[in-house]
Amino acid sequence: MSESYDFLFKFLVIGNAGTGKSCLLHQFIEKRFKDESNHTIGVEFGSKIISVVNKMVKLQIWDTAGQERFRSVTRSYYRGAAGALLVYDITSRETYNTLTTWLSDARMLASQNIVIILCGNKKDLDADREVTFLEASRFAQENELMFLETSALTGENVEEAFVQCARKILNKIESGELDPERMGSGIQYGDAALRQLRSPRRAQPQGAQECGC
Protein backbone atom coordinates (compact mmCIF):
# COMPACT_ATOMS: atom_id res chain seq x y z
CA MET A 1 0.00 0.00 0.00
CA SER A 2 1.41 3.35 -0.91
CA GLU A 3 1.27 6.12 1.62
CA SER A 4 -1.07 8.90 0.87
CA TYR A 5 -0.97 12.18 2.70
CA ASP A 6 -1.58 15.84 2.13
CA PHE A 7 1.43 17.28 3.84
CA LEU A 8 4.75 16.17 5.15
CA PHE A 9 6.20 18.06 8.12
CA LYS A 10 9.71 17.74 9.37
CA PHE A 11 9.83 17.64 13.17
CA LEU A 12 12.62 17.75 15.71
CA VAL A 13 12.76 16.46 19.24
CA ILE A 14 15.30 18.43 21.26
CA GLY A 15 16.27 18.95 24.87
CA ASN A 16 18.82 17.81 27.43
CA ALA A 17 20.14 14.28 27.81
CA GLY A 18 17.91 11.86 29.69
CA THR A 19 14.71 13.87 29.42
CA GLY A 20 13.00 11.08 27.50
CA LYS A 21 13.11 12.35 23.93
CA SER A 22 13.56 8.95 22.34
CA CYS A 23 10.92 7.45 24.59
CA LEU A 24 8.45 10.15 23.52
CA LEU A 25 9.13 9.36 19.90
CA HIS A 26 8.80 5.67 20.52
CA GLN A 27 5.59 6.08 22.50
CA PHE A 28 4.12 8.27 19.76
CA ILE A 29 4.92 5.84 16.99
CA GLU A 30 4.59 2.50 18.70
CA LYS A 31 2.16 3.44 21.47
CA ARG A 32 4.40 1.67 23.88
CA PHE A 33 7.00 2.65 26.42
CA LYS A 34 10.48 1.67 25.46
CA ASP A 35 12.07 0.44 28.59
CA GLU A 36 15.20 -1.18 27.27
CA SER A 37 16.80 1.47 25.19
CA ASN A 38 20.18 2.82 24.28
CA HIS A 39 20.83 6.48 24.67
CA THR A 40 20.93 8.31 21.40
CA ILE A 41 24.27 8.98 19.79
CA GLY A 42 23.82 11.16 16.76
CA VAL A 43 20.21 10.71 15.79
CA GLU A 44 17.20 8.44 15.69
CA PHE A 45 14.19 9.00 13.53
CA GLY A 46 10.76 7.78 12.76
CA SER A 47 7.67 8.73 10.81
CA LYS A 48 3.97 8.46 11.20
CA ILE A 49 0.90 9.64 9.39
CA ILE A 50 -1.72 11.33 11.50
CA SER A 51 -5.01 12.87 10.72
CA VAL A 52 -5.34 16.51 11.73
CA VAL A 53 -8.31 18.72 10.88
CA ASN A 54 -9.30 16.65 7.87
CA LYS A 55 -5.80 16.51 6.51
CA MET A 56 -3.48 13.57 6.47
CA VAL A 57 -0.13 14.73 7.68
CA LYS A 58 3.01 12.69 7.61
CA LEU A 59 5.42 13.60 10.38
CA GLN A 60 9.05 12.87 9.78
CA ILE A 61 10.64 13.14 13.18
CA TRP A 62 14.30 13.55 14.00
CA ASP A 63 15.26 12.75 17.55
CA THR A 64 18.62 14.09 18.56
CA ALA A 65 21.32 13.33 21.11
CA GLY A 66 20.90 15.54 24.14
CA GLN A 67 24.37 15.86 25.57
CA GLU A 68 25.80 19.33 25.27
CA ARG A 69 28.86 18.27 23.32
CA PHE A 70 26.74 16.68 20.60
CA ARG A 71 25.21 20.00 19.79
CA SER A 72 27.68 20.76 17.04
CA VAL A 73 26.70 17.48 15.45
CA THR A 74 22.95 17.59 15.96
CA ARG A 75 22.69 21.08 14.56
CA SER A 76 22.92 19.58 11.09
CA TYR A 77 19.48 18.11 11.60
CA TYR A 78 17.79 21.39 12.36
CA ARG A 79 17.81 22.71 8.82
CA GLY A 80 14.31 23.13 7.53
CA ALA A 81 12.31 21.79 10.44
CA ALA A 82 8.70 22.94 10.59
CA GLY A 83 7.97 21.86 14.15
CA ALA A 84 9.74 20.84 17.30
CA LEU A 85 9.12 19.23 20.63
CA LEU A 86 11.31 20.94 23.18
CA VAL A 87 11.60 18.51 26.05
CA TYR A 88 12.62 18.93 29.67
CA ASP A 89 12.21 16.63 32.62
CA ILE A 90 9.83 17.90 35.33
CA THR A 91 11.99 16.15 37.95
CA SER A 92 15.16 17.96 36.91
CA ARG A 93 15.50 21.69 37.23
CA GLU A 94 18.73 21.58 35.28
CA THR A 95 16.98 20.34 32.16
CA TYR A 96 14.52 23.21 32.52
CA ASN A 97 17.22 25.81 32.99
CA THR A 98 18.79 25.09 29.62
CA LEU A 99 15.57 25.59 27.65
CA THR A 100 16.56 29.06 26.49
CA THR A 101 19.65 27.74 24.77
CA TRP A 102 17.71 25.03 22.98
CA LEU A 103 15.12 27.55 21.97
CA SER A 104 17.54 29.96 20.43
CA ASP A 105 19.31 27.13 18.62
CA ALA A 106 16.03 25.97 17.14
CA ARG A 107 14.92 29.42 16.02
CA MET A 108 18.30 30.30 14.64
CA LEU A 109 19.12 27.03 12.89
CA ALA A 110 15.77 25.64 11.84
CA SER A 111 13.67 28.63 10.99
CA GLN A 112 12.28 31.73 12.64
CA ASN A 113 8.79 30.38 12.07
CA ILE A 114 9.36 26.99 13.59
CA VAL A 115 6.38 25.93 15.69
CA ILE A 116 7.54 24.67 19.04
CA ILE A 117 5.71 22.85 21.76
CA LEU A 118 7.29 22.68 25.18
CA CYS A 119 6.96 19.25 26.78
CA GLY A 120 7.48 18.75 30.49
CA ASN A 121 8.10 15.03 30.36
CA LYS A 122 8.00 12.38 33.11
CA LYS A 123 4.69 13.71 34.35
CA ASP A 124 4.18 10.32 36.01
CA LEU A 125 6.97 11.12 38.49
CA ASP A 126 5.03 13.86 40.18
CA ALA A 127 6.46 13.03 43.61
CA ASP A 128 9.95 14.03 42.41
CA ARG A 129 8.82 17.16 40.63
CA GLU A 130 11.26 20.07 40.61
CA VAL A 131 9.55 22.27 38.03
CA THR A 132 5.99 23.40 38.62
CA PHE A 133 3.37 23.44 35.91
CA LEU A 134 2.76 27.14 36.38
CA GLU A 135 6.29 28.35 35.97
CA ALA A 136 6.78 26.26 32.84
CA SER A 137 3.50 27.45 31.46
CA ARG A 138 4.58 31.01 32.05
CA PHE A 139 7.89 30.38 30.33
CA ALA A 140 5.97 28.97 27.40
CA GLN A 141 3.75 32.02 27.18
CA GLU A 142 6.64 34.42 27.34
CA ASN A 143 8.38 32.59 24.54
CA GLU A 144 5.35 31.91 22.38
CA LEU A 145 5.45 28.17 22.80
CA MET A 146 2.64 25.74 23.24
CA PHE A 147 2.92 23.70 26.38
CA LEU A 148 1.97 20.28 27.68
CA GLU A 149 3.16 18.02 30.43
CA THR A 150 3.68 14.54 29.02
CA SER A 151 4.51 11.06 30.12
CA ALA A 152 6.33 8.78 27.71
CA LEU A 153 5.76 6.03 30.27
CA THR A 154 1.97 6.17 30.38
CA GLY A 155 1.53 7.81 27.01
CA GLU A 156 -0.36 10.74 28.51
CA ASN A 157 -0.37 13.76 26.19
CA VAL A 158 2.25 12.25 23.92
CA GLU A 159 0.13 12.02 20.80
CA GLU A 160 -1.46 15.35 21.73
CA ALA A 161 1.90 17.05 21.70
CA PHE A 162 2.63 15.99 18.15
CA VAL A 163 -0.92 16.61 16.98
CA GLN A 164 -1.15 20.09 18.52
CA CYS A 165 2.10 21.09 16.94
CA ALA A 166 0.99 19.77 13.55
CA ARG A 167 -2.39 21.48 13.87
CA LYS A 168 -0.79 24.82 14.52
CA ILE A 169 1.39 24.44 11.46
CA LEU A 170 -1.66 23.60 9.36
CA ASN A 171 -3.43 26.68 10.70
CA LYS A 172 -0.49 28.81 9.77
CA ILE A 173 -0.46 27.37 6.29
CA GLU A 174 -4.13 28.09 5.87
CA SER A 175 -3.83 31.61 7.16
CA GLY A 176 -0.94 32.18 4.78
CA GLU A 177 1.48 32.84 7.58
CA LEU A 178 3.53 29.84 6.48
CA ASP A 179 4.32 29.18 2.88
CA PRO A 180 5.03 25.53 2.18
CA GLU A 181 6.65 26.50 -1.10
CA ARG A 182 9.36 28.45 0.58
CA MET A 183 12.74 26.73 0.73
CA GLY A 184 13.50 25.28 4.11
CA SER A 185 9.95 25.55 5.39
CA GLY A 186 10.12 21.91 6.47
CA ILE A 187 6.83 21.32 4.72
CA GLN A 188 6.17 19.35 1.56
CA TYR A 189 2.99 18.54 -0.26
CA GLY A 190 2.07 14.91 -0.32
CA ASP A 191 0.53 13.07 -3.26
CA ALA A 192 -2.99 13.76 -2.12
CA ALA A 193 -2.41 17.49 -1.88
CA LEU A 194 -0.66 17.62 -5.21
CA ARG A 195 -3.64 15.98 -6.87
CA GLN A 196 -5.87 18.63 -5.39
CA LEU A 197 -3.60 21.40 -6.46
CA ARG A 198 -3.44 20.09 -9.98
CA SER A 199 -7.16 19.79 -10.36
CA PRO A 200 -8.44 22.78 -12.37
CA ARG A 201 -10.73 24.10 -9.65
CA ARG A 202 -7.88 24.68 -7.31
CA ALA A 203 -5.32 25.64 -9.88
CA GLN A 204 -3.85 28.52 -7.97
CA PRO A 205 -0.91 30.21 -9.55
CA GLN A 206 1.44 28.87 -6.91
CA GLY A 207 4.51 30.18 -8.63
CA ALA A 208 3.31 33.76 -8.51
CA GLN A 209 3.63 34.17 -4.79
CA GLU A 210 7.22 33.13 -4.49
CA CYS A 211 9.71 35.31 -2.77
CA GLY A 212 7.66 37.32 -0.42
CA CYS A 213 10.71 38.05 1.67
Binding site: L25, F28, G46, S47, K48
Partner: peptide, 8 residues
Amino acid sequence: VDMGSIRT
Protein backbone atom coordinates in the same frame (compact mmCIF):
# COMPACT_ATOMS: atom_id res chain seq x y z
CA VAL B 1 -4.12 5.82 10.41
CA ASP B 2 -1.16 4.19 11.88
CA MET B 3 1.48 3.74 9.33
CA GLY B 4 4.17 4.50 11.75
CA SER B 5 7.62 3.28 11.23
CA ILE B 6 10.56 3.86 13.42
CA ARG B 7 14.15 3.18 12.87
CA THR B 8 16.15 2.88 15.98
